[in-house]
Write a protein that binds this DNA or RNA. Structure first.
Length: 202
DNA sequence: GGTGTGATCGTA
DNA sequence: ACGATCACACCA
């Protein structure tokens, strides 16, 4: 299906508090032109992670080798390895030097589903291809090699194809945080009633 | 539909 | 020692 997926969101889009950016990323499209075939999916679930004031954020305790990308320019892609087996992907935000980021948690597959299925052999249904942060990263082939790349330019980008974010997104606590580690903040945003949205809030 | 649990290893 | 998770088993 023909789509206008070439114009990446500009750096100024990302150069704001992650809490502002996160809900606006809903219904935007993540695109990869790395391989022979385009892979694209519509973002339907995200979480905002802030800086020194957010105990749930990787940047809470300051800069380390792992989280260095969060301290870099807005519009960067921050990938990290977790649970000894999974990669997850974030869009680095601001404002300015603030080490904020938005975790990309789930998306609706649009293009390149055959490529996604090869990377995610365990996905039984198409709705399982990108339903979860590690699943989404795997479907797009994102890993260590992509940490720090620029989403505002290059083969991997986020674009606005004309679909507005929802007027009223679903909002909940972020998933997977231990009690007292930022789980009290309602910084998960999702498209209501979308079957590709991942697990329930805890 | 739901809940419970093992896998697996870099990071601090 | 633990995680910004997943897949599968099992029960319903």
């Amino acid at each position: 299906m023909a789509r206008r997926l070439n114009r990446a969101l500009p750096r100024r889009f990302y150069d704001r508090d992650a809490i502002e950016v996160a809900p606006e990323l809903l219904n935007k499209v993540l695109v990869s032109d790395e391989g022979d075939e385009r892979v694209a999916a519509r973002i339907v679930e995200v979480e905002a992670y802030r800086g020194l004031d957010d105990p749930g954020s990787h940047s809470y305790r300051g800069r380390t080798p792992r989280n260095a990308t969060m301290f870099g320019p807005p519009g960067g892609l921050y990938t990290y390895f977790t649970y000894g087996m999974h990669w997850c992907a974030n869009a680095v935000c601001g404002p300015g030097e603030q080490p904020h980021a938005v975790l990309l948690r789930a998306a609706v597959p649009l293009d390149g589903l055959d490529v996604m299925r090869v990377r995610r052999v365990k996905a039984r249904r198409d709705r399982d291809l990108c339903a979860g942060p590690a699943r989404l990263a795997q479907a797009f082939g994102l890993d260590r090699a992509h940490d720090g790349i620029d989403l505002t330019r290059g083969p991997i980008r986020i674009v606005d194809d004309g679909m507005a974010p929802p007027d009223v997104p679903g909002v909940s606590a972020r998933i997977g945080l231990a009690p007292g580690k930022g789980d009290e903040f309602p910084w998960r945003y999702y498209v209501l009633s979308d079957p590709n949205v991942s697990g329930r809030p805890r």
